[in-house]
């Protein structure tokens, strides 16, 4: 089977500003792809191109093997999309808007709608102008999740949702994933897609800088470790895989190469560990590593 989404050499300019320089990635059938990048990297621009909302300047962009600009209508019948900033008509209620989206999309599941409204604890009788950002986001998500599509595209879907709702969203996406659908999930926070993504595509300043499984990428990165020991913590500076070592009294903070984690732990335990904290690599760390080479 061919790729669900195929983006090759995509470029887009806004006036003189080159928002997308070279974007290339694929989404395979049944795959969940995390599309990660800092704010302004070009995630939404890429997604808008995929949906035919804006027109690309160069490159090849296909969904289901069809051109996203010319055959957008055929494609749209089989996809669901939630924009990053769900903005609604203030005079309509959440319930009305969900019904409208379902109808205009076609093939919505009324039961699933009701189920999701309960699940996300949305008050569908309230006029949208009274909704918080999180509630607006829920309206968009419920509408998209209630239809049966082959590809789901979510642009920063959890911004504005509280952690509880975020968890519910992830569960619902997991269900879709289990039923074999493809999903493209953008975020500027790596940890948001960690749980779901089979593959991560990282974009920065309009260019794809990394593609691979999360483990592949993790491998490249270093965790930040804070360590307090009974013995002289300065000993740790000599251990393989320890970088950027900083010490205050008996406490040290350093970056630890994940490849050498075992060695580091063994050395630390010799000194008698009083406190050990490890923070997984952030997106920024991944970038740092990328540019260090």
């Amino acid at each position: 089977m061919t790729e669900v989404v195929k983006v090759h050499g995509l470029q887009k300019k806004f006036g003189k500003f080159q928002a997308l320089k070279d974007v290339t990635f694929t989404v395979e059938p049944g795959e969940v792809v995390g599309f990660i990048g800092p704010n302004g990297a070009g995630k939404s621009t890429t997604i808008r191109t995929l949906l035919g909302i804006i027109k690309r300047d160069a490159g090849n962009v296909e969904i289901f093997g069809k051109d996203v600009w010319k055959d957008s209508l055929d494609i749209h019948k089989r996809i669901s999309y939630v924009p990053g900033d769900v903005s609604l008509w203030g005079s309509l209620t959440g319930g009305e808007i969900i019904d409208l989206f379902l109808k205009l999309h076609g093939g919505g599941d009324k039961q699933k709608r009701d189920y999701l409204i309960k699940r996300f604890e949305l008050d569908p009788k309230k006029k949208a102008k009274g909704y918080s950002k999180g509630n607006r986001q829920k309206v968009g998500l419920i509408a998209a999740l209630s239809v049966d599509s082959d590809l789901y595209i979510f642009d920063e879907p959890t911004s504005g949702l509280d952690p509880l709702m975020e968890a519910i969203f992830q569960e619902e996406v997991e269900k879709i994933k289990e039923s074999g659908k493809s999903i493209l999930l953008s975020s500027h926070i790596l940890s948001e897609v960690e749980r779901l993504a089979d593959k991560v595509v990282i974009i920065r300043q309009g260019e794809i800088v990394e593609t691979g499984t999360l483990d592949d990428l993790r491998h490249l990165a270093r965790s930040t470790v804070t360590l307090e020991t009974e013995g002289d913590v300065a000993e740790m500076n000599k251990v393989n895989g320890v970088f950027d070592f900083k010490q205050t009294d008996n406490q040290a903070t350093f970056s630890a190469d994940n490849q050498y984690l075992n060695e580091i732990l063994m050395e630390a335990s010799k000194l008698g560990v009083k406190k050990f904290e490890s923070v997984p690599p952030t997106l920024e760390d991944l970038f740092m590593r990328h540019y260090e080479g």
Binding site: T93, E96, K125
Partner: peptide, 26 residues
């Protein structure tokens, strides 16, 4: 005051035309 709205959309809303009439109605 704001009245409580409908939980489900009326059929007349469920099209581009219905939507545009609604948002331009006022």
């Amino acid at each position: 005051p704001e009245r409580e709205g409908r939980e489900r959309a009326k059929k007349s809303l469920l099209s581009v035309r219905g939507l545009f009439i609604k948002i331009n109605k006022g």
